[in-house]
Simulated scan of single mutants.
Amino acid sequence: MHKNVNLLALRLFVRVATHGSFSQAAAELNLLPSSASRHIAALEHALGQALFTRHSRAVRLTDAGQRYYESIREAIEQIDQAGEHIGEEDEPRGRLKISAPPAFARRHLAPILMRFQERHPAVELDLWLTDTFSDPVEAGIDVSIRIGELNDSRMLARLLAIQSFVLCAAPAYVEACGAPQDPAELSSHNCLVYQATYGPQKWHYRSGDAPFVPVDAGGNVRSNYIEYLLEMVRGGKGIVCFPTWLASRYLERGELVPLLGEMTWALEPDALGIHAVYPANRQRSRKTQSFLQWLGESIGEPPYWDGWQRVAAAKPKPRRR
Rank of each mutant, 00 (worst) to 15 (best):
Q201M: 12
A184M: 03
F212M: 11
W203D: 01
E231P: 06
K237C: 03
S223G: 04
N224Q: 13
V233Y: 03
D182R: 03
E252W: 10
Y250V: 07
S164K: 12
E262C: 11
Y194F: 07
F165T: 02
M232N: 13
D216P: 05
S223A: 12
M263P: 05
A266I: 03
G254P: 04
C177F: 15
Q195H: 00
D216A: 03
A161E: 00
L259S: 07
P258C: 12
Q201N: 10
V233W: 00
R222N: 08
Y194M: 02
C177K: 14
P183W: 11
A217L: 00
Y225P: 11
P200Y: 08
C241I: 04
G236P: 01
L192R: 01
T197V: 15
C241E: 06
L192P: 04
G238K: 06
V193F: 03
V233Q: 02
K237L: 11
G235Q: 13
G178V: 14
E252M: 13
E262V: 15
T197W: 15
P214K: 01
P258T: 08
M263T: 14
Y198G: 13
W203H: 00
D209Q: 12
G254K: 15
D216Y: 10
A176I: 12
A169W: 06
E262Y: 13
P243L: 05
L260R: 12
M232I: 05
A179R: 11
E231M: 09
L256P: 02
L251N: 00
L230P: 04
S187E: 04
W203N: 07
P180H: 02
A170C: 14
L192D: 03
V174A: 14
G218A: 01
Q195F: 09
E227R: 15
S223I: 08
C191W: 06
L267R: 02
L167W: 07
G199R: 03
L192V: 00
